[in-house]
Amino acid sequence: MMHYEFALVLFTVLIQFCAGLALLVWLAGVHNYPALEKRLWRVILACGVVALGGSTMHLANIMHAPFTLTQVGTAWLSREIASVSFFGLLVLLRVLNVGGNKLNPVIALVGLGTVYVVSQVYRVPAVPFWNTIGTELGFFGTALALGGAGLAVFLHDSKEAEDAPRALSLAAGVCVAGIMLSLVQPLLALQGGAAALPEGSLVQTLNIAHGLGLPRLLAAVLGGFILCYGLVRGCKCNAMVLIGFALIAVGEVAGRMLFYAANIRIGI
């Protein structure tokens, strides 16, 4: 049986998507396409709100949520919440058109920082599958894969940016790099687990995970391929790009479910 909290899967994947997309808004110079940019900031804000809202499902007592910001000095979880909130605030400013597009690089960097901070919550010494550099790589990978794929979808769909090959290829490239990073994560995790957990734990984990592992891999590879194929062909086939994005997203979600299911602690 796999055990994971879907609230957390949703939260981390969505936040990483937001951060990735924000990064690409900056890198791809989306401010050149104001309508698209506006649309994207709204999408990011919406996803962030859903992510934050969803994450509260994980809390037993939401009334005490304000206290979670009090331990920024010591707890990565506090930092995560603060960082996500700050990121969200900046995005909100952009949506309200405050500050102008010179905020874009700031938001992009805060987003990247947020992804890092989120990853640190999972650098738990008691959980060897998590406590590897793979966690950071995987989280950044998800951000890039979904950010890249997301931008591709929107670019492809935008009349305004009809002729933006540089942006498109950047999106595709980042996406593919992200997928690769994201797929490195389980390898490093398994290595970490194998080094620290009792003999047999690895096999047990693989037994639990194997039902989802292969689909996750297929979704990522196939998704990346379809997305790129859709873009390279230059066809007006939105469906193909969308399918690619959807597959990549499914792959990342599945990967995250596996990640949480690998919450096997040292000790008792």
Partner: peptide
């Protein structure tokens, strides 16, 4: 209990499973 948000993060970190969430009391 007047501060705990019941996020389970302490439980993840403890290799002795000492903190445990009481769902009905809504805190660790």
């Amino acid at each position: 209990a007047t501060r705990c948000v019941g996020c389970n993060n302490c439980a993840w970190n403890c290799p002795y499973s000492a903190p445990q969430l009481d769902k009905s009391k809504k805190h660790m």
